[in-house]
Amino acid sequence: MKHFLTYLTGLIFGLGISMSGMANPAKVLNFFDFAGTWDPSLVFVMGGAVTVSFFGYRALFKRYETPAFEPRFIVPTSRVIDAKLVGGSLVFGVGWGIAGFCPGGALPALGALDANVWVFFVALVAGIFAAKFMMKLTAAKAARRAA
């Protein structure tokens, strides 16, 4: 039951992405092409998603102390705005503008069995591992300096 509900949650997300146009790079890139073939559809995706989660999260946290399957809610609490956050996000934007896929759009799109999505996915995974490796190097260097 637990696994089925988790699967269903993923399925609802994947169906939403499929309907919204977020799995379609042509549409995503046109949303950002204000000076060219602008397609404002994605405003409605973001608007719909944020509205539901804004009210949904509030109702949920008001009524329940814990989630159904875990001992507690794990919600990011950091309020630190640093170069890592802003720099990383800017870099993400550059990649998104080049490829047209973001992770949330590409992961469901893998199921559409289009070879292009898998090419993007493999590169995305390589990028995630490369970042983890670089972060480990930085941490090791900082540890050596502190020692």
Binding site: A26, K27, G88, F92, A99, V119, A131
Partner: peptide, 26 residues
């Protein structure tokens, strides 16, 4: 669902790698 990719495979690879780095740091 329609998956139209108006960029080259090279762009997908470069873009995907950059996205992976950016979302990890961000």
């Amino acid at each position: 669902p329609v998956v139209e990719v108006p960029v080259s495979k090279t762009a997908l690879i470069i873009g995907g790698f950059i996205v992976g780095i950016g979302v990890s740091y961000g």
